[in-house]
Amino acid sequence: MPSNDRFPAHHLELLPVPVPIGTFRNVLQVGNILYVSGQGPLDRDGALCKGKVGRDVSTETAYEHARLTGLNILSVLSAHLGNLARVKRFVKLLGFVNATDDFTEHPRVINGCSDLLVEIFGEGGVHARSSIGVASLPNNITVEVEAIVEIFPEGNSHE
């Protein structure tokens, strides 16, 4: 599994860790399972990607927003663990798309996050997933994704 030094090979750079916008933690660890709170598409400058998918934002653009959200998930994990070497596998993602009533391409949008994880972690990035459309998301963001991640025990990693 990758340590942070693998990111240059993928032309990726971890982003600043988002600050929770409510009374919760970005990550809660229970044994070797990490529960990552819903993350959104926040760029390096702290700007949120906003809008209603299917009206203001295309499926292709929302896919990129979901990919950016995946980078935020990795940033949160790296901050919690010190690096990403202890990530064993992504178990489950739950993706929300701020979409119009008639939008039906939710899976294509959330593939942005899923594809990133598979690109970086290979088989360890393949996960169970649900993707649903919602009437709104906090701050009018386009997508939000939460994750359940299995890690190697402390002192063990697979680099």
Score class of each variant (00 low, 15 high):
D43T: 00
I148C: 03
H106V: 05
L94W: 06
N139A: 14
R129N: 07
E146Y: 07
L81Q: 07
F96N: 09
P107D: 13
D45T: 01
I132A: 15
L117M: 13
P153Q: 14
R108I: 08
D43L: 08
G125L: 04
T104F: 09
F103T: 07
S131N: 12
V97M: 09
P18I: 04
I141M: 13
L94E: 08
V118L: 10
P20V: 04
A9Y: 15
L34Y: 04
V36P: 01
R86D: 03
L68D: 06
F96M: 06
G54M: 10
P16Q: 04
N4S: 14
I148H: 05
C49N: 03
G31D: 09
F96H: 12
E159I: 14
I141Y: 06
F90L: 10
E119Q: 12
R129D: 09
V57W: 04
T142V: 12
H106P: 05
L93N: 01
Q39D: 00
P8H: 10
P20F: 11
L116V: 07
R86S: 05
V91A: 08
V118T: 15
V19R: 12
E13S: 05
G112S: 04
S58T: 15
V27E: 03
L74G: 00
T23N: 15
E159N: 09
V126S: 13
E119F: 10
L12D: 03
G70Y: 02
L71Y: 00
E13T: 10
V91F: 06
Q29G: 06
L12Y: 07
S136P: 00
G112K: 02
V134Q: 12
N139R: 15
V57E: 05
N156Q: 14
G122R: 10
G82R: 14
F7P: 01
H158M: 13
E60R: 15
K92E: 12
H10R: 06
V126I: 13
R6T: 12
L117F: 10
G70H: 02
G22N: 13
V76A: 09
L42F: 02
L93T: 13
H106L: 03
T69S: 02
G122C: 08
A128T: 11
A147E: 05
L42G: 00
E64G: 06
P153H: 12
